[in-house]
């Protein structure tokens, strides 16, 4: 899956080259303030390969992920556009895929989306015309077969690098792995995991993933949440599907300097994740604390990030452990 076109996804090229990817996240504002997004993007520029742009996360109305993604793009940060199935039917989703493509936004992360009952519009209609696997299949169709879901032909197939999510801690594991396998069969080329705190459990999950060969068909990117405060960690623990072991909670509780500890916990995790076979990168989630990403990228030895415009010196970046 090597891509040479100038407009191709940089993120994809990093993964294709076998380098350990490093990505972060930008949460669009609850306003139409472009500068808000630009500022966040500037704080990440040069420190990440790409940044996820969340799609009305927790069902709270925010600036559209494509609009915010384009703002990040103009600041030199390649976006990974998150797209949920919650709010748009297949007409709107396909239309937005064309729009993203036209704006030069090449990476899309497909997910179900948090139910609207969590957000600030619990009275809204719940769409789910398609589920995330069906949407991945639609992206694959539009990119590889040049066909819309309805069967008509696209003048030019879309150039999109599609990804999916996985939760290594959700049970039953067999069912979750079946579902991950379906996502990969439906076209997911990269997989971002839920935030990891319990490294032993994650290791165990990766073993199952490797046994199924999923890591050879899609790049597995490990999620790391960075907490600034004890409260933020406790809130993270309440997110559906999150699993924070008592040891991590205690470490934060006992810490004098919570910010330092939050970064320390993330760095320790990244140190471990880098050495797990089949992990192709880490994805740092530091929503509302974008400046932490710079510190982490430096201290975790992630700099400089590869640039495909320059001639690269081999071996300057941590390699993905693949066998």
């Amino acid at each position: 899956m090597t891509v040479s076109s100038a407009a191709a996804s940089n993120f994809r090229r990093v993964l294709d080259s076998g380098r350990f990817s490093f990505t972060a996240e930008i949460g669009p504002p609850m306003s139409g303030d472009a500068e808000n997004v630009r500022k966040k993007a500037r704080s990440l520029k040069g420190f990440v390969d790409a940044a996820n742009i969340t799609d009305n996360q927790t069902a709270i109305v925010r600036m559209s992920s494509i609009a915010a993604g384009y703002l990040a793009y103009t600041e030199g940060v390649e976006p990974i556009i998150q797209m949920t199935c919650r709010d748009r039917n297949r007409i709107a989703l396909q239309s937005d895929l064309l729009g993203a493509c036209a704006l030069g936004l090449r990476n899309v992360l497909i997910l179900s989306g948090d139910h609207q009952s969590f957000g600030n519009h619990p009275a809204s209609k719940n769409v789910y015309d398609v589920d995330s696997i069906q949407l991945l299949d639609a992206v694959r169709g539009m990119a590889d077969d040049g066909l819309f879901m309805g069967g008509s032909r696209l003048k030019t197939p879309i150039d999109i690098f599609p990804g999916a999510t996985a939760n290594p801690f959700a049970d039953p594991r067999e069912l979750q792995l079946i579902r991950l396998g379906k996502k990969i069969r439906a076209g997911a080329k990269f997989v971002q995991t839920q935030g990891i705190y319990d490294i032993a459990k994650f290791r165990d999950w990766m073993e199952a993933v490797r046994a199924l060969g999923f890591h050879e068909r899609a790049r597995i990117i490990a999620g790391v949440v960075v907490n600034k405060t004890q409260k933020s960690m406790e809130m993270t623990a309440l997110v559906p599907g999150m699993d924070i072991p008592e040891s991590a909670l205690r470490r934060m509780r006992d810490a004098k300097n919570k910010e330092e500890e939050g970064i320390g916990i993330a760095l320790d995790l990244i140190g471990e994740l880098k050495n797990i076979e089949g992990v192709a990168g880490v994805h740092v989630m530091a929503i509302g604390w974008e400046s932490a990403v710079k510190t982490i990228s430096e201290l975790a030895g992630m700099l400089p990030r590869p640039s495909f415009d320059e001639k690269l010196e081999e071996g300057s970046w941590p390699e993905t452990k693949q066998t």
Binding site: C85, S112, H115, Y128, D131, A170, Q176
Partner: peptide, 11 residues
């Protein structure tokens, strides 16, 4: 709650 046809959501 999401009328999924291909298995459970992450929640």
């Amino acid at each position: 709650a999401k009328s999924h046809f291909n298995g459970p959501c992450g929640g």
